[in-house]
Simulated assay, not measured.
Amino acid sequence: MENCSFTGPVQYFFIIGFPNLQDHQFPLFCVFLVFYLLILACNLTIIMAVVFDPKLHKPMYFFLTNLSVLDILLTTTTMPKMLAMFLVNSRLISALGCFLQMYCFHGLVVTETFLLVVMSYDRYEAICNPLHYAARMTKRGNVQLAAGAWLSALLVPIPAVVQSSQLVYSETPRVYHCFCDHLAVVQAACQNSSADFQTFLGFTIAMIVSFVPLLLVSVSYVQIILSILRISSKDGRSKAFSTCSSHLIVVSTYYSSIAMAYLSYRADMPLDVHVTSNVVFAILTPLVNPLIYTLRNKEVKSAVKKIVILKIHRCY
């Protein structure tokens, strides 16, 4: 944290990016542009497949569409500014823009944890209570579950964002990150007890909204696995497990990236490692999620093939 005598309201933050890669901005731009375009293309393909294929008009794919929309919004919150920083050295961001980016990024991250819980509940009902599945997972109920995940999660970051905006900063604080992550912005504040409290508050909220949903997902999958093991036929067990394996891989990828980002902050590692781990967390799951569901789900794979073939026919 910085010692400073400036007491006026901060107007701009200066985004450092990768401290030790300042001479490699254009290669970074190319790499992240490819990642961003892949994220947009893959997630838009999933959305189109679910919307246009009647066979995918099921609760599981409704929640998958929400996840794809979320992943597009999550990367669009951070990527355009990062690309501008790498390409034209646009490192200044207004204070309002910084705190708005912080709120959107963390709110969408929390939304993803809640959506993963909702999706695990859907798989629990499908496998553990198949006779009551249609009655419990109605269209209205699905919309309420998805809306609850979005709205409640977007309320979680408000206290941390509001309080961090009231910290004392230097005239142009330097944020050692590629975007306005909460902890990176707090570390750019002047040294005081409020900043220390903000660090504690950020970690506390992060742990609660990460591990409580993880506990709920784990409980759901324990029940799912027990139900699968009680199925007598081998084909029945294989089919039941295949319906939830994609979601289980997505959950594992998501929480592995969270753990990597958390450990990089807590361990005594170079600053570039801290930044890289958080950037990987921000782009890994939005990129991996559609690939997992496309490659491992026959219905989604079939719908995507139809879309690709239709586009090829239109081109010719």
Rank of each mutant, 00 (worst) to 15 (best):
L28F: 04
M119L: 08
L216G: 00
Y255N: 02
A95R: 00
V209W: 02
I93A: 09
S170R: 11
H274I: 12
I292M: 09
V185K: 13
L183V: 15
S210Q: 04
V109P: 05
A49C: 07
V51G: 05
V250N: 05
S252H: 01
R91M: 06
P19M: 05
V280W: 03
S264W: 02
M48K: 13
N289F: 04
F203S: 14
Y121K: 08
F18Q: 00
I307N: 14
L131D: 13
R266T: 04
Y254F: 13
E2N: 12
K311S: 12
L83S: 03
R91L: 07
M85Q: 05
Q166Y: 02
I47S: 11
S193P: 13
C30K: 11
V117S: 02
L214V: 07
I93Y: 10
E171V: 06
S120L: 03
F18W: 00
S170V: 04
T294A: 12
V175Q: 07
G236I: 03
S218E: 00
V161S: 03
A206M: 13
V161H: 01
A282F: 11
P54R: 14
S256T: 06
C178G: 06
G17E: 01
E299M: 07
A149Q: 00
F35A: 10
F29N: 01
R230L: 05
K234T: 00
V308Y: 11
S68L: 13
Q101I: 02
R230K: 06
V34R: 07
V110D: 02
L183A: 15
K301T: 11
F197K: 15
I72P: 03
Y169W: 03
F14N: 09
A126M: 07
K311C: 12
M137F: 04
M85K: 11
L116G: 00
A206V: 10
Y254H: 10
I93N: 12
E125R: 00
M85N: 03
L271H: 05
V34Y: 03
N43A: 06
S5A: 08
L215S: 03
I93S: 09
S232C: 09
V10D: 02
V51N: 10
S264T: 06
N289Y: 11
L310M: 09
V185W: 05
Q101C: 04
F18N: 02
L183P: 08
I283G: 06
L214D: 05
G8N: 01
F241S: 09
F32Y: 12
N278S: 10
D181M: 15
D235N: 09
H57E: 08
N289W: 07
M82N: 09
A195N: 10
L44Y: 10
V273P: 11
N3R: 08
V69T: 08
H247T: 03
R174Q: 10
K239I: 13
G148N: 04
Q22R: 01
I228A: 14
Y293L: 15
I15V: 07
F14W: 09
F13L: 04
Q25Y: 08
A146C: 09
V34L: 07
S193V: 13
I205H: 01
T76G: 05
R314F: 06
D23I: 10
L284D: 01
L40C: 04
K298S: 04
A303P: 15
I283N: 09
R296S: 03
R266F: 01
S245V: 13
H106D: 04
S257E: 04
I158L: 12
H24F: 13
H57G: 15
F6Y: 10
M48Y: 07
N297I: 08
I224V: 04
D268H: 08
V161M: 03
T294E: 08
V31G: 13
